[in-house]
């Protein structure tokens, strides 16, 4: 692939579909109907000659996760969630629906809470990502983690990672003082065990501290 130039349209990944771009994409979405194996082989060959360093069809992502620089080569289809869990073994972040409908996968990107299941890992070049593991560990818990512990702000613990990440992000978001305000702001995190009142109590304790 061609050199990366600042201000240019930068290819950071070379996959089999690069073939389309190299040979010129047509309206017929060339190749979609080809048998996949043959297609992949053909592209790999083209890609090889063009950019030997990136023939494996993986996207390069360099980002900071919990303060530590990481450089990952991932399938472009890999979500931020799966990259954290499968590539960095940060399994504290959970998959509950994979469609942004439960909040279990909530992490911070550049200090803001997002659903990591609806974001590609490749979109996070240069970002700072924080997961539950990055907040604190047993013996050195973040005040929000401690508050969840004291208030029994969970039952099974599976949605807890997302709840706590949302709760910590909430501290910096505009949110009214009432329990109802916290409940509305936290509604993107489903707790099927229904530990909601304890979660709200934990958050309010930290907010008032």
């Amino acid at each position: 692939m061609s050199e990366k130039k600042p201000g240019d349209f930068v290819e950071i990944q070379l996959g089999r579909r690069n073939f389309l771009q190299i040979v010129g994409m047509t309206g017929a979405a060339s190749g979609l109907g080809l048998p996949v194996a043959a297609h992949a082989a053909a592209i790999a060959a083209v890609a090889h000659s063009a950019a030997p360093a990136e023939v494996d069809g993986l996207a390069l992502v360099r980002f900071k996760v919990n303060g530590k620089a990481q450089s990952l080569k991932v399938d472009p289809r890999t979500t931020l969630l799966d990259a954290l869990r499968d590539h960095l073994q940060l399994t504290g972040t959970k998959k509950g629906c994979d469609h942004g409908q439960c909040g279990a996968c909530t992490v911070h990107v550049n200090g803001r809470r997002v659903n990591s299941c609806l974001s590609l890992a490749a979109m996070h070049e240069g970002d700072e990502v924080t997961t539950l593991e990055g907040l604190g560990q047993p013996g050195n818990l973040h005040p929000m983690q401690q508050a969840f512990l004291e208030h029994d702000g969970y039952q099974c613990g599976y949605c807890t990672s997302g709840q706590i990440m949302s709760a910590v992000a909430l501290m910096k978001e505009p949110c009214g003082p009432a329990n109802a305000d916290v409940k509305e702001a936290m509604s993107g995190n489903i707790c099927r065990c229904g530990a909601y009142s304890n979660i709200v109590a934990a958050i309010q304790q930290v907010r008032k501290a």
């Binding site: 869990r85 499968d86 073994q89 940060l90 399994t91 504290g92 972040t93 959970k94 998959k95 997961t131 539950l132 593991e133 907040l135 604190g136 560990q137 047993p138 013996g139 818990l141 983690q145 401690q146 969840f148 512990l149 004291e150 029994d152 969970y154 613990g157 599976y158 807890t160 990672s161 706590i164």
Partner: peptide
């Protein structure tokens, strides 16, 4: 407070799909 609580609030509690 739950004895397993510190693991749950820090992401250290291992659920089945966390095994690799």
């Amino acid at each position: 407070a739950r004895v397993d609580g510190p693991l749950k609030v820090s992401g250290a509690a291992r659920y089945s799909s966390d095994h690799s």
